[in-house]
Computed example of a mutant assay.
Amino acid sequence: MRTPGIIPVPIAALLPGESPRSEGPDQEHVARLAEIDGPLPAILVRRSDMRVIDGMHRLLAALIRGQETIDVEFFEGTTEEAFLRAVQANITHGLPLSQDDRRAAAGRIIASHPQMSDRAIARASGLGAKAVASIRRRSTDVVPQLNSRIGRDGRVRPLSSVEGRWRAAEVMAENPTASLREVARIAGISPATASDVRRRIQAGEPPAPVRSDTATVPAPALPEFPEAEAADIDAMVPAQGGRPRAEHGVRLPQPSPAMVLEKLLRDPSLRLKEEGRHLLRLLQQNASAEWNHLTAAVPPHCGALVGSLARQYAATWLEFAQHLDERDQSTAQKAVS
């Protein structure tokens, strides 16, 4: 009596699938299976293309025995999901995979399922979690790095509470009416942490405590600027735009671009939005450009073209600054009236 979901399929209708075994089927193992007295266990086949996911040794043994059909259990899923299932199946039964094949399989699973935790991939590939972590570190150039991973229990956990906090702040900025539970679910943090993020934002603090040994938000590297005291920067750079404040009729000197950029990069209201981060990147690129060296890099026949572009870009920045001035003046007039 067959197990429900398993049906006989003509062997001629089946195709070999992608196996995690680098050296192909083991002929001695095929011969041993062919000598078994009784039906062979069902093989696993992807329904969409009739390719064998698990059971090539049994399929070859059935051919040796002269069978025209073989019991099949069908699988529904993508090519990547089929390969993951094939590795899992070869770990739990049949001829064990070699150590090299397990490591190669783990590397491929990391690439196709980067959201899986090291322990989950270790369980699927038959390796240790430390070995999987080592393979993942060597794959960082080609594997996307995510902010969370799915564990063996199926739960999503953030790799860093700091990243989860900044993600929660982004969700709050995009949807101010979202509940704490909804924010926590999207950001992969607890409701209590989401509540603390909201409290910190309302107090004008960054979503995560700033530590000297960690970076709260990934950002492009800053060029080396002379250090300045935070109090001096805040005094010279106005909080809401406009020109530097003056006290007792004394006009303060214009702050250096480095000092202004330093203040802007610390402002959560800019860093929490994609448009704000884009603006900061543009400002950083302008600040870090070495114009004297760039002038020498322009060949004579391109001088007029590059100069024309530079003037157009400068005019665009000037127009942008004028729009900001007009907006600030309008806001100030409305506040007075």
Score class of each variant (00 low, 15 high):
Arg2Ser: 14
Pro4Lys: 15
Ile11Thr: 04
Ala13Phe: 07
Leu14Lys: 03
Ser22Val: 12
Pro25Glu: 12
His29Met: 01
Val30Phe: 01
Arg32Ser: 13
Ile36Arg: 15
Ala42Lys: 04
Ala42Phe: 00
Ile43Asn: 08
Asp49Phe: 03
Met50Phe: 10
Met50Ala: 12
His57Trp: 04
His57Asp: 00
Arg58Glu: 07
Arg58Phe: 01
Leu59Pro: 06
Ile64Asn: 11
Arg65Phe: 03
Arg65Thr: 13
Gln67Cys: 14
Glu68Ser: 07
Glu68Gln: 11
Asp71Ile: 03
Val72Pro: 09
Gly77Gln: 02
Thr79Phe: 06
Ala82Thr: 09
Phe83Pro: 07
Leu84Tyr: 05
Val87Phe: 01
Gln99Cys: 01
Asp100Ile: 04
Asp100Cys: 00
Arg102Gly: 06
Ala105Gly: 07
Arg108Trp: 05
Ile110Trp: 02
His113Asn: 07
Asp118Gly: 03
Arg119Pro: 01
Ile121Asn: 05
Arg123Gln: 15
Ala124Thr: 06
Gly126Asn: 09
Gly128Pro: 08
Val132His: 03
Arg136Met: 11
Arg137Asp: 15
Thr140Arg: 15
Asp141Cys: 07
Asn147Arg: 15
Ser148Val: 00
Ser148Lys: 02
Gly151Trp: 00
Asp153Trp: 03
Arg157Thr: 12
Pro158Val: 12
Trp166Arg: 06
Ala168Val: 04
Glu170Pro: 03
Val171Gln: 10
Met172Glu: 02
Glu174Cys: 04
Thr177Asn: 14
Ala178Tyr: 01
Leu180Met: 15
Ala184Thr: 05
Gly188Lys: 04
Ile189Thr: 14
Ser190Glu: 14
Ser190Cys: 08
Ala192Lys: 14
Ala192Val: 15
Ala192Asn: 15
Ala194Asp: 09
Ser195Asp: 10
Ser195Cys: 08
Asp196Met: 14
Val197Ser: 12
Val197Arg: 10
Arg198Ser: 14
Arg198Lys: 15
Arg200Ser: 09
Glu205Gln: 15
Pro209Met: 11
Asp213Trp: 08
Thr216Trp: 02
Val217Asn: 06
Val217Asp: 09
Val217His: 12
Ala221Leu: 13
Pro223Gly: 02
Glu224Asn: 03
Pro226Cys: 10
Glu229Asp: 15
Asp234Val: 03
Ala235Gln: 09
Ala239Arg: 13
Pro244Lys: 02
Arg245Met: 11
Arg245Gly: 13
Val250Ile: 11
Leu252Glu: 05
Gln254Ala: 12
Pro257Gly: 09
Ala258Pro: 04
Val260Arg: 15
Val260Lys: 11
Leu265Gly: 06
Leu270Ser: 03
Arg271Gly: 01
Arg271Glu: 01
Leu272His: 07
Glu274Ala: 13
Glu275Ala: 06
Gly276His: 02
His278Arg: 10
Leu283Pro: 01
Leu283Tyr: 00
Gln284Phe: 00
Asn286Arg: 14
Asn286Tyr: 03
Asn286Pro: 05
Ser288Pro: 02
Trp291His: 06
Asn292His: 12
Thr295Phe: 14
Pro300Thr: 11
Cys302Val: 03
Cys302Met: 11
Ala304Pro: 04
Ser308Gln: 14
Arg311Cys: 13
Gln312Trp: 05
Ala314Met: 08
Trp317Leu: 15
Phe320Cys: 05
Ala321Lys: 14
Ala321Tyr: 10
Asp328Cys: 01
